[in-house]
Design a protein around this nucleic acid. Sequence first.
RNA 1: CGGGGCGUGGCGCAGUUUGGUAGCGCACAUGGUUUGGGACCAUGGGGUCGGGGGUUCGAAUCCCUCCGCCCCGACCA
Length: 602
Amino acid sequence: MCLSHMAYPNRCCVNLSNEEVATMKVSQMLISTLRENPAEAEIVSHQLLLRAGLIRKSASGIYIYLPLGMRVLEKISAIVREEMNRFGGQELLLPIVQPAELWQETKRWDVYGEEMFRLKDRHNRDFCLGPTHEEIITDLVRREVNSYKQLPLLLYQIQNKYRDEKRPRFGLMRGREFVMKDLYSFDRDQEGLEHSYKKMYQAYTNVFKRCGLDFRVVEADSGAIGGSTTHEFMVLAETGEAAIVYCDECDYAANVEKAEAIPMETEKEPAAEMELVATPDARTIEEVAGYLKVSPKRLIKTLFYRADDEIVAVLLRGDREVNEVKLQNHLDCLQLELADPKQIEEIAESPVGFVGPVGLNVKILADKEIPLLTNAVAGANREGYHYKNVNPGRDFEIDEVADLRQVEAGEPCPKCGAKLNSARGIEVGQIFQLGTKYSEALNAKYTDENGQEQLLVMGCYGIGISRTMAAAIEQNHDENGIIWPITIAPAQVVIVPVSTKEEAQVEAAEKLYRACLNAGLEVILDDRDERAGVKFKDADLIGYPIRVTVGKRTVNEGTVDVKLRHSGEEQAVQLTEATSHLKELVDNLFKQYQAQYEGITA
RNA sequence: CGGGGCGUGGCGCAGUUUGGUAGCGCACAUGGUUUGGGACCAUGGGGUCGGGGGUUCGAAUCCCUCCGCCCCGACCA
């Protein structure tokens, strides 16, 4: 099979009906491009998705996929399917509307909170629109799988998911309804899980390579889904919502939410007598540091959090930022937010800005750097005053020490010590080793060869299909529009007759179009009675990788002009050789996006 | 959830301050001239001005209320 047919193998070299021929003519297709950027679109992928006529908005965070957008979605899905199947995945389709009972069994009915779309049926039974599918798939497997002989199982689906996001934004980047591929692995034991995980790691790498994306795999936090080992696949882009750090010297890369912070030693001093000093109007770290002429590194920043109704104090060095993900993991709580100033004033008996750990009677958590401080400055819990020469352990007790701060660029790599770089990324995929979290909650077991019941060991693996489409545009565009990698383009070739009034051009274009269709190329004929400029602009905007122009000159010469979208390179090709030339071009373009199939296999 | 902004034909906008019954560009339709990078001329269709209520002889415009959409923030003491 030629490379260009990998997405649609069954379309290879078949005779097409007149309807099928017609559906790839622009005059017959629902393609509407916009000359101007809609006011609602802020980032380039959102703007181009709308302008090129790939999507339209239905409600905030909810979109219609127009025919061209649908084709891209199908292309990405097809690549994902191939890679899932290649590594042993079996496709199924799970319900969107899911009964509350399953979610109550795993306690996530409450955990998910406001983000879950909930509904009731006519009998007043609770349901939700699936934000994810661990419950429903585990329920299926616990009923269908009894024996170790049926394992391992890798089951996946490509399906809409629903999350009522606090703030949907950036078009397809963060929607409330989105298309996701999710695969769940069921193994006998940890060893099996690790093998499944490795396979998916490779499959994901292949998928994103084939989609033409520049991405990095990073260590991540497992969040609400739970589990231990997890990696995120990040498409590098300025507009990405996630911050990552990575090391150039070794392979370390992590989401900042997860990135381990190495405590940095501050200069040790012999402990001095603690001293109350007046710091009128100095409330912020900068103000206090400036007023007392000490480095922010010697300040103790005291934050108050409300963790499931318990108030805790969190201590960090003055120049550091708290990492709420680490904090929440450490506290193992469902809700975590900064306490409101009124509560703080009650607890510390002092206004915010002068609070500190000395004499506090709430639980005190400290970042690993805090015990390393000597003669530090902290709020005195008295308006207008701070303490100097505060020494942890002597002047206040720390209840728990943990890594609670955010890593910054320039800090040493936790693996090799070289300097870390930072970048922004769009999370297009995440893989998790769940372990037995869900099989335990849902009592999903199998019987091993000794007749013993064992818990299934699970993994889950997601790819944001619709988000990948947006990410691809973020990385592949210019001022004229989208530049699709050929692997996911809505069509590989667009044929543009310059004038539809010139019979010879129309004929030549139509003939070439049919020849391309029969050769299995994905081709679109822009047969609209428009000026050439309009069709060129649309072709650039929509981003077909190859454009073929049929004009008066080319017809006279018996040639066509073939132009590549990504390089702008254009050359005349003999009409008689056009089809085979295009096939070759397409195949060559495909070769840029080859995946790796060495090593791990199903 | 808090703050800000916006809502006028498919898209982008003006008109709102100072009430008088809706306009521009693009797109669309028809005809003509054009035709290798978003042509030009002419004619035409399309809007209960986000919804509801109120003030007024009269409301896109003033008041009340609800809704939708976008952006920023969500407290680093």
